[in-house]
């Protein structure tokens, strides 16, 4: 028999789908700003492995000479990004949904087993509630990263008035680096997230829009009830 199983609250779905375009605009406008002083590179033992960003990348996304435009979009949409994030964190805390989300002590060990399972190395995945151990870590980390982006962002937006945040981030120069690295983190998260959503299939995806999943429950055998202790 088909049954409706509630999965995602309306607030969670709202925050998720508002965050997606907001974060996209923030990353895009952030790129327009970063171009103004694009000095970051991955360098090890004197060898440069990657330059942020190569010329073809700027050309392809039409990023050059748009600093003032980037600042305008970034400094307006950041407020929506922050409000949405604050609402999500407040809701998650008050509703108690954080219990499903925050990593538990065993999550860090279990996350490896989840990874091995996802890579088809291990057959069994550890038992889970709404989210598995790897999801708990990822979905909590992304919130911590969001808070980090707001703090490092404010630290470079108003380094004199918010001097305490700038100090906390190790100074203006380092805060800008942190802000950039966090953005790389979002892109990394996004790639993994989308791959996982594809692999999990339509049913899982649509539950983030509808809020529920349809489960097929086998009718319980009536005769055998009470015969043995029911396996759970």
């Amino acid at each position: 028999m088909k049954e409706i199983k509630e999965k995602h609250s309306l607030a969670m779905r709202w925050c998720h789908w508002v965050n997606f375009p907001m974060l996209s605009i923030m990353i895009w406008s952030g790129m327009l700003i970063y171009w103004g002083d694009d000095e970051y590179k991955i360098k090890l033992f004197g060898h440069t492995y990657f330059v942020f960003f190569p010329e073809w990348f700027y050309k392809f996304f039409n990023i050059t000479h748009r600093l003032q435009e980037g600042m305008a979009f970034h400094f307006l949409f950041m407020w929506f990004f922050i409000l949405n994030g604050v609402f999500y964190v407040a809701y998650t805390l008050i509703s108690g949904e954080w219990r499903e989300l925050v990593p538990q002590r065993k999550s860090f060990k279990e996350a490896w087993l989840v990874l091995l399972h996802d890579l088809h190395i291990r057959k069994m995945a550890p038992p889970q509630k709404k989210y598995n151990a790897a999801q708990r870590i990822a979905y909590t980390a992304i919130i911590v990263m969001g808070i980090g982006s707001v703090i490092t962002g404010l630290a470079i937006y108003k380094p004199v008035q918010c001097y305490y945040l700038t100090r906390l981030c190790g100074g203006y120069h380092f805060a800008r680096i942190l802000h950039f690295v966090l953005t790389l983190g979002y892109v990394f998260f996004f790639v993994i997230h989308v791959v996982q959503v594809f692999l999990a299939g339509w049913k899982n995806f649509s539950s983030v829009i509808t809020g529920f999943e349809v489960v097929n429950n086998k009718p319980k055998p009536i005769i055998e009830k009470g015969h043995d202790e029911e396996a759970s």
């Binding site: 700003i33 970063y34 600093l67």
Partner: peptide, 8 residues
């Protein structure tokens, strides 16, 4: 710390 709008 002198700060340029470009980012440096």
């Amino acid at each position: 710390d002198f700060k340029c709008v470009e980012g440096w």
